[in-house]
Each structure stands twice: as C-alpha cells, then as structure tokens.
Computed example of a mutant assay.
Amino acid sequence: MPFSPRRCALLALVASLLQLPVAQAADCHVFETETLTLTGTLYPDTFPGAPGFEDVTQGDEAEVGFYLALPEPLCMTPNDEFEVSSDQRLDYLQLILDQKGYDQLRPYLLSEGKLTVKGSITGALTGHHHTPLLLQDVEFVSGTPTEPVDCELLAENASLDERLPSPLPGKITGEGRLYFHTAPNESCGENKAYIVPGDVVSVTNIHSFGWANVTYTSKKGTEFSGWVKQGQVLINGE
C-alpha cells in the first residue's frame, strides 16, 4: 500500500530525530585523550581555596588562576569518571599551568578573543578545580598581546567597584616581598613599598582578577596603601 505524503513526512521527521543524537555525539570531544585547539579570552580569576573552599573573606585562601572563556560551550562525551550536564558552565575553562606557563600567557590576559592554546580536557576532581572542565598539558599556539594598561583609569574604576562593606583584617602569607601597586594590574607597580609574610593589614577592597587593596601601618606609624596580589593575603584567617 503506498504511503500518503503526510505519512512520508512523519516518517522522515522520526528518522531525523533518531539520527540527531548520533550527529551530536560525533561533534562531542573525549576527556583526556583528545588534543583540542581552542581560541578565547584569557582572564585571571579568584576562587576560595583551603580550608573551607567557600569564602575568601572568611579565612579561605585565595586561589588565583588563569581561565579561558570560549565563544560557545564545549560538548563533551561523559565517561565513568567525568559527568557533564546542561546546567554546568562549559565555556569557561581553568588552565592547569606551571610557573613557566603563567609567565608565557600573562601578556595575553584580557586580550579579547585573541589567544589560541591547545591541550586536553579533564574534569574537576578536587576542591582546587574551580570549573567543570579544565585544560591540561597547555601549549601556546598564537595570540595578540594586551594593549598597555591605563593604570590611573583602572585604579579609578576599581575604587568604584566596592566588594567589601567594611575593612577586614588580613595577614600576609607566602614567601618574599609583596609589592604595592597603584592599580590591580602587574604593570602598575610602584616597586618601592612592600610588605612581607607575617605583616598584618586591613583589607579595604578585593578585585575579581586576583588583587586586594590593603592598608599597612609600619612599626614607626607610617601608613602604606595600595593593591597587592590577593593570593598572599589571608583574610579573617588565623
């Protein structure tokens, strides 16, 4: 018996729906074994670390890292170790880097969509992994360095973005001197005043790109204020 045009159209629709997951799966990537080349914008970002992994203003260490924002989410094929879901943010990747990697990529921070790197995708396994997807074995491919920073304008904008309702006590951790900067950016350093591990400060503001505005009073009563790297500032900690 010949099929009517309406029935043929219905069968064609069903066939296309049945094939859709196969086509989508073919476009998805595999965890850890596949090398991807990705282009996006590189951001510094801060997340709470040990001991509670909840709030940097309540004694948790500030973990500052580099993150790649992609123009669209990645499609990943789940496996026995890593799950993915539609409610996760899959267009923002934490980069797993050593110090050499940080130094190599730093000139490309905030260069809009102009950094290309390659590596393999892994999933979050510990509290130090702050995004569902992470890029490991990262290699620089190409990029356009960020334009020179207007430190005065950046300092003005940062001062308007108040993130703390009132100053909080802080203590300097880590190793070596921590230099004051006029604005929350590496290129805005004063290279004169500094504080050292063990110094107690008052934290007046924090910046999402990994900086804290602090005030320090020396033993002689001299007051110093400025932006320092937040990774060495323990806020409300012991």
Rank of each mutant, 00 (worst) to 15 (best):
S4C: 01
P5S: 05
P5C: 07
L11T: 09
L17G: 06
L20H: 14
P21Q: 06
A25W: 09
A26Q: 13
A26K: 15
D27E: 15
C28A: 14
C28G: 10
H29Q: 11
V30G: 05
F31P: 06
T33W: 09
E34A: 14
E34L: 14
T35R: 14
T35D: 10
T35A: 02
T37E: 12
T39G: 07
T41L: 10
Y43M: 11
T46D: 04
F47D: 14
P48L: 00
F53V: 05
V56G: 02
Y67W: 10
L70M: 08
L70V: 13
P71I: 09
E72C: 09
E72Y: 11
C75D: 09
M76A: 09
T77I: 15
F82A: 06
S85P: 01
S85F: 03
S85I: 02
R89Y: 09
R89G: 12
L90D: 12
D91L: 02
D91I: 01
L93A: 04
L93F: 03
Q94H: 06
K100G: 14
G101V: 10
G101K: 06
D103G: 03
L105K: 10
R106C: 07
R106I: 00
P107R: 06
P107W: 12
Y108C: 04
Y108S: 04
L109H: 07
L109E: 12
L110S: 09
S111A: 15
S111K: 13
L115K: 03
K118F: 05
G119W: 01
S120R: 15
I121T: 09
T122R: 11
L125C: 01
T126A: 11
T126H: 04
H128I: 09
H129N: 14
H130C: 04
P132H: 10
L133I: 13
D137H: 09
V138Q: 11
E139Y: 02
F140R: 09
F140Y: 15
F140M: 10
P148S: 07
V149D: 01
D150Y: 01
L153V: 05
L153I: 07
L154P: 03
N157V: 11
S159Q: 13
E162G: 08
L164V: 05
P165K: 07
P165M: 05
S166W: 00
P167G: 08
P167V: 02
L168F: 00
P169W: 01
I172S: 08
G176Q: 11
G176K: 15
R177H: 13
R177E: 15
Y179K: 05
T182G: 13
T182P: 02
P184G: 04
E186L: 15
N191S: 13
K192L: 14
A193G: 06
Y194T: 01
G198K: 00
G198C: 04
G198I: 02
V200K: 14
V203W: 00
I206E: 05
S208W: 07
F209C: 11
G210W: 01
G210K: 02
W211R: 03
T215I: 04
S218M: 07
S218A: 14
K220I: 08
K220V: 10
G221Y: 04
E223F: 00
F224Y: 15
V228W: 03
K229A: 07
Q230A: 14
Q230V: 00
Q230M: 12
G231K: 12
Q232K: 13
L234I: 00
L234T: 00
N236D: 11
G237E: 02
E238K: 05
E238W: 06
